[in-house]
Computed example of a mutant assay.
Amino acid sequence: MITRADVERAARTTAGLTRVTPVLEGDPEVFPGPVWFKCEFMQHTGTFKARGALNRVLAAKERGELNPDVGVVVASGGNAGLANAYAAAQLGVPATVFVPAAAPAVKVHKLKAIGAAVVRGGAEYAEAYQAAIKHAQETGAVYCHAYDQPEIAAGAGTAGLELLDQVGGLDTVLVAVGGGGLMAGIAAAVEGRAKVVAVEPETAPTLQAALAAGAPVDVQVSGVAADSLGARRIGDIGFSVAVRAGVESVLVSDADIIDARQKLWDDYRIIVEHGAAAAYAALTCGAYVPGVGERVAVILCGANTDPATLT
C-alpha cells in the first residue's frame, strides 16, 4: 500500500534527477471536454519507469543495501530493465536484466547500450522474474521489481503530482495497466482530487480479473501490448490502491490499441508503444466516454517502439 505522502517523498528523493515531462492539450473539437496528454514517453529511457527505478535504487543506497560490486537486478520485458539500468548507471553500479524471449529487439539493444548485462529468462515475464529473484538471492544484488514495490510505485506516481501542478483541476486520469505500478502511483498522487480509470487490453485484464475475484489472480497474457502490459497478475500494491481509491477498469481490443497508436501519430506526430496507446484507446474507441466538460488527462507512458511500424 502507498499513499500520497509516499509519492511526495519520492518526488523529494528524485528531484533534479528526472525530467518534468510536458503536457500537451488535445484538439478541443474532438472530445466533449478538454483532454491533456502527459508526455511520459519523453522521460529518461523513454518511459515513466525511470522515476520509480531512481527512487528504489537511491533508497536502497541510503539504507546501505546497495553493494557497488553487484548492483541491481530486474526482470523486465524491456522498459523496467531500461529504467533500472539507467538508474544504476547514474550511481555507477552494475545492472543485470532478465528479459523474456519475446522482449523487443529495440529494447534489448538499448539495454546493452546503457551497459546492462542482459540475460534471457524464459518465454514470459513470470519466468524471467523467477530467474531474477534467484540471481538476487545468490549475489546480493538489490532486486528492483518491475512494478510491485512501494518505492517503484511511489516513484511512478510523481508523474501524477507533476500533472496536477501543470494542469490544475482534473476530473479523470486514464492510465494503462499491466502490473499496476503506474496506476497505483498515479491513483495515490491524485486521490481525493481526480478519479483514475485503468485501461487494460482485453488480452491481459489483470486488474479487472482481480476486482471480480476480490484478489489478484493469474490471467492469460497475449496481444500487441504484451511486451509492456504483459504481467500475468496485478501487483498487490496496485490492487490495494485500486480498491481503496475506487479505480475502475475498462478494456480495449488489440485493434483499438493499434488504431489509437496510429491516431497519435497522424494527429499529433506522437510516437508511442502499444502499451502507451492503450490509455488513449479508451477515448478513441468509446470504452470510456467523458461527460460534457469533463477534464481528462491521458498518461502516455512509453515510446520504446519501432517507428517503422507506423504508416
Results as ranks from 00 to 15, higher is better:
T3D: 14
R4H: 11
R4V: 10
A5H: 12
D6P: 11
D6V: 14
V7L: 13
V7I: 10
E8Q: 15
E8G: 13
R9L: 15
A15L: 12
L17M: 14
T18R: 14
R19V: 15
V20Y: 14
D27T: 13
P28Q: 08
G33L: 02
G33C: 02
C39D: 07
K49T: 04
A50K: 02
R51S: 01
R51Y: 02
R51Q: 00
V57Y: 00
A60N: 05
G64S: 04
L66C: 05
P68F: 05
S76N: 06
S76L: 06
G78F: 05
A80P: 08
A80W: 05
A83V: 04
P100Y: 00
P104S: 00
I114S: 00
R120Q: 10
G122Y: 02
A123C: 04
E124I: 08
A126K: 05
E127S: 04
A131K: 06
Q137H: 07
Y147F: 13
Y147C: 01
P150M: 06
E151A: 08
T158Q: 08
T158F: 07
A159R: 08
L164W: 15
V167H: 08
G169Y: 10
D171L: 11
V173I: 14
A176L: 07
V177C: 04
G179V: 04
G181T: 06
L182T: 05
A187P: 03
V197T: 05
A198Y: 02
E200V: 03
A210P: 04
A210M: 07
D218S: 09
A226L: 07
G235W: 12
I237W: 13
F239P: 10
A242V: 15
V243D: 09
V250W: 09
Q262M: 11
K263F: 13
D267R: 15
R269L: 09
A276S: 15
A282P: 14
P290V: 10
A303C: 14
A303D: 12
